[in-house]
Amino acid sequence: MMNDVLLEIKNLRTYFKLHEGILKAIDGVSLAIGRNRVLGIVGESGCGKSVTARSILKLVPAPGKIEGEIWFHGGEKPVNLAALPPTGNAIRDIRGREIAMIFQEPMAAFSPVHTIGDQISEAIQTHQSLPKPEARGRTIEMLKQVGIPIPERRVDNYPHQMSGGMLQRAMIAMALSLRPKLLIADEPTTALDVTIQAQILRLMKRLQAELGMSIIFITHDLGVIANMADDVAVMYLGRVVEYGTVRQIFENPQHPYTQALMQSIPKLGSKGRGRLASIEGTVPVPLDPPRRCGFADRCVHFIPGRCDADVPPLIDTEAGHQVRCILYE
């Protein structure tokens, strides 16, 4: 789908074997992330955004099992990340230096017994040979760039001495300081105030352009997607239901779910306070899901005998725009 691909996910399936049944968190996701591009992944809570991100870095907790291929084209030879042992040296070398991740929960990224400065400096040093004072200087500079006031003092804080928003920014600083080829940002600004969020988004965009980095930007905020992404994947219940450029997705959303999602957000500056279009029902849990369109139960275009007969294929509707819906067959 794209010439200069940095990461290629092919038919990824991440299942959790639970005693209630098999939870198919990711059920056949294929995606490509171009070099120097930002891929936005949107979708509601539980649709599999975080599990997709964690699968790439082989950080899926037990009893999760990954199948499929994840080709990383960042080194001399392509590597299939999915085939690497999750605790081996090969994936460790890639984590951080080649692919860095900003987690949804900032507490999880830092150890409580070391200062954030030591942790960021150490991460910088293990990936680049820099003397300690330089690494510390670089750490302070990054903390400053993510908008942490008085970074020379904050650098010696322990995680518990920082507010949630501050820690979130420290984690962003850590990920960016490694200058990775691919940054995976999982809801990086959801916990932040809008004015701080705006600062961080601008910083990420600037560094992305400067370093030629690719970003996978995960969020459920369509406003953030519109501002950050070049390409967009819309997920629903463990599958990509629509993929296209940001323009295609916002100007010509095709999947009934994408359309409903777009209409359910209140638009600023729109006069009148009529009812919002809402999608009835809720996102189901993919426990032993039947082979059918995951959105069928909530879809206004549901066709009995067709939508519930099989999983719809991903259909090309225009160059670079794909939709998983039989309406486009």
């Binding site: 908008g147 006031p149 969020q197 705006a198 601008r202 953030v224 519109a226 501002n227 940001v246 600023l268």
Partner: peptide, 23 residues
């Protein structure tokens, strides 16, 4: 505050400068 909201509208990209500093 109004200018810092990321809007789901491609014709209204976020402003280049908004507030700096903290509450």
């Amino acid at each position: 505050l109004l200018s810092a909201i990321p809007r789901p509208d491609l014709s209204r990209p976020m402003k280049e400068v908004t507030l700096e500093g903290e509450v």
